[in-house]
Design a protein around this nucleic acid. Structure first.
Lengths: 177, 177
DNA sequence: GCTGGATAGTCGTTTGAACGACTATTGTTC
DNA sequence: GAACAATAGTCGTTCAAACGACTATCCAGC
């Protein structure tokens, strides 16, 4: 068959449809680039970032426990399937589950000593990760970035779960009108 | 067995390990929240956001073509497997592939009329999506957010691919030292 | 013109996410 | 107290991402 397509790439002028779209795509790309470093750290320890977050949450309430859904509500990103996420942690002996006697529908999850050990072992790497990712920005810039990100997602937060999340803006005063 | 765990959730004081970590987690959560809207729009059209981006890129060079890897380099987020992403678009008849005659290793991809139609059909939804996601922020804030996101990922961009990406900061002047 | 290395893309397999249907338990209403 | 809805969690299935091994082609050097 004859080749009708040119074999040369030509320059593009993409431009975004709108400022809002550009902001979202920048957000997406930035997240993706930073996440790359992230994954590298965690997969060296046989764990995912999401699983680490669950452990971090459970460690913060230790020696108490949280219901399955309470853990889910506190995770950074929504996770459809808490059951299987916790299954994997339980298989590794990092968390333990126990059905609540007062309300047998709920299952309480707590971190084990082995789980605490994993989080502690990761602590230094996680600290370094933060520096690697964003250490080149000064504190004022970081605060400003955080503030804008919070404002960006504010209308999209579920009021029911926002209270459970550490970074929620509630109670904070807006800097500008 | 005796129930040794309390069946009550107790309040947490999570706090982030560092400002850098907080910024990254805020970025993650914000991306996740905004992405939720995103997915809703595209899955109504039987396509993923990543696939839409590939189509958008190919439409911008129409009627020219791009090599498989050139499309990958211009995508918002790194995609490990261009082959299968394009496979799916080709199955739906939205793109067509042709092996380059001059260099038979490369495969050129171009968008079909059906592909253009899909992008056009989505245009209104995508426009509305932007407003839904970030329409509550004024233009100054959006620009500032974009600028900070670019600075956040600047050190993590591969110099080889950054040139291919529309939002690259190259050529822009830094506002602050 | 043959060999080794680089490049472009493809494919097999494993793993995790997404969506929805399903079970068990509790609370509500008449 | 039986029926129905709501809640908490589990599980089956389907789909996409991740990782690496593999093929085909080209280029460079001898």
């Amino acid at each position: 068959m004859a080749t009708s397509q040119p074999c040369r790439t030509r320059p593009v002028s993409p431009a975004f449809d709108s400022l809002e779209q550009e902001a979202y795509l920048q957000l997406w790309r930035t997240y993706d680039r930073l996440r790359e470093l992230d994954e590298r750290v965690f997969q060296g320890h046989g764990i995912t970032a999401q699983q680490y977050n669950a452990l971090r949450i459970l460690k913060s309430v230790r020696p108490g426990a949280l219901s399955t859904s309470a853990v889910g509500a506190r995770l950074i990103s929504r996770a459809a399937d808490m059951t299987r996420l916790l299954d994997k942690l339980e298989e590794q002996g990092l968390v333990s589950r126990k059905r609540c006697e007062e309300n047998r529908r709920v299952v309480y999850v707590s971190i084990t000593a082995a789980g605490v050990a994993v989080v502690n072992r990761l602590a230094a790497d996680v600290k370094r990760l933060g520096k690697d990712q964003l250490g080149h920005l000064d504190r004022r810039t970081l605060r400003s970035l955080i503030d804008m990100l919070e404002r960006a997602r504010e209308p999209h937060e579920d009021p029911a779960t926002v209270a459970a999340w550490p970074g929620s803006r509630q109670g904070k005063r807006r800097v500008e009108a």
